[in-house]
Design a protein around this nucleic acid. Sequence first.
RNA 1: GGCCCGAUGGUCAAGCGGUUAAGACAUCGCCCUUUCACGGCGGGAACACGGGUUCGAUUCCCGUUCGGGUCACCA
Length: 551
Amino acid sequence: MSDNLKLAELLFPNITETPDDMEAKFPPRNLKEGVRVTRLAPSPTGFLHFGNLFAGTVAYRTAKTTDGIFFVRVEDTDQKRKIEGAVKVMLDGLEAFGVTADEGVIGEDMEKGDYGPYYQSKRKDIYHVFAKTLVEKDLAYPCFCSAEELDEIRAQQENEPQKGYWGKYAKCRNLSFDEIAEKISAGAPWTLRLKSPGNAENKCFIDDMIKGKIEMPENVQDIVLLKSDGIPTYHFAHAVDDHLMRTTHVVRGDEWMSSCPVHLQLFKCPGFKVPKYAHVAPIMKEENGGKRKLSKRKDPEAAVTFYIEQGYPKESVNEYMMTLMNSNFEDWRKTNKDASIDSFPFNLKKMSVSGALFDMVKFNDVSKNVISLMSADKVYGYTAEWAKEYDADFYAILTEDPAHSTAILGVDRDTPKPRKDIACWSEVKDYISYYFDELFDNNLEMPENITADMAKEILEAYIAVYNENDTKDEWFQRMKDLCEPLGYTPNVKEFKKNPEAFKGHVGDVSTVIRVAVTGRRNTPDLYSIMSLLGKDKVMERLNSALKHFSA
RNA sequence: GGCCCGAUGGUCAAGCGGUUAAGACAUCGCCCUUUCACGGCGGGAACACGGGUUCGAUUCCCGUUCGGGUCACCA
């Protein structure tokens, strides 16, 4: 038996299966040409970053445009970072925005699919099968260096452009079998390192779906494959898992770009076919005129839960993400107003190479558009659903009379030119507050051109003629009739032509009524509002305003 | 510092050697209008810099500058 074989046995005495067994157990998927298999491989930190959702959405769409498979694999190889309930947080966040896995981890300790387990922590033996053959092929070796020794090596490398564990710095690379056997029998901890066959003089090539063709020096680092607890590093797990799970397209953040030479090698050493890569640029945030990654610590909008808590519809988030993913989406949307976002021909190659700034203003605009197209029933339903969870007081008020609330939300809604007032459900409370005495802010501040005397006059006159049974036309006619006796003109154009001749125009008159009734200057159609409010409330507010301006 | 990527209005971005350099958001003006919004029309606003290549460079090449990423027994 050769030393390599002996070493493999020594290191992995309990591994009896071979790579061929693995190939048989996880055979190539029986898919049509061009069908893609993608995945999201988050590590369970208990926090779902917007970037995860974004990359996950890209991966999801990449698969879905070919009727392919999207799966979720949990990268829980770092025992130190394990957090209870983290998987649920992530899955819930993904689910809330329509990223649902066909396969893989579908719940806390719940899996689905034939290529599992999908928790890396449960795949130890699988990794060891491949680790063992690498040792047999003299492509891996145990390393006994301690953290301190590694630090020492780093200290020596100050003037060395090529840092890390390689070449002459790789102390354990050429240990003899006997030396190794002795250390192991003494119980020394070890990691398994790649015996990198690379040469820095050589180039390797990545043809990234997003970034294009990229050339980098070959990897020469003897990177760690297996940590001293026997659990693989991300790099090794990535190669083994994405090969065995038959991933066709690896979609991930572009912070992985620079480890591609390592990954290429890790696929090639065991003889795996290299998948296609798509490296997604991060979402950025503006700060002091510069750009930086959306930060978990500094930016509330970095957390996916933010959008849920604020009550942004999932359609809004998806529409906005799509405008960032494929810039032709907005044009497509213009001509396909009612189409589902799923029918948009998403194209990986149209992804931007560099990171886009998250634009809250634009996002809100997108969301307002989305909501403006919803029916009053839908708006009511979503708002109630949101309020139930995040604003119990408002929920009680809103749902006391569902038909009434729905009618309120329907003002100026189902028209060819719906208003765009609401960006998220948490804004609804304020938007409709004046309909409810509990929420009504009795703010009687008039525009500067309207004095208390003017307001008083107008209110007096209007109270005298107010009729709750008016049709809209009658109502408006009454408004106009009010004008001339008080010195206003019903004709705005006439006023503009000759402003000195009048105290104001019909707009000023209705503004006084509007402020008295709603406490604001800007509202949807006043007639509809007054109808919904009902005679008692309207009269009460008019009288109370009159009192205020008579004082 | 080494390696890699990038740079078009305030933002997201089309563009692939010859364009009046699209569009969207934002902003400003006008129109519509009972307010606000919606909608319509219009305005301001950009190819980082320096060298090449070319009849001609936003586009191709090289440098500079500036951004970003990465160099762990983290992912």
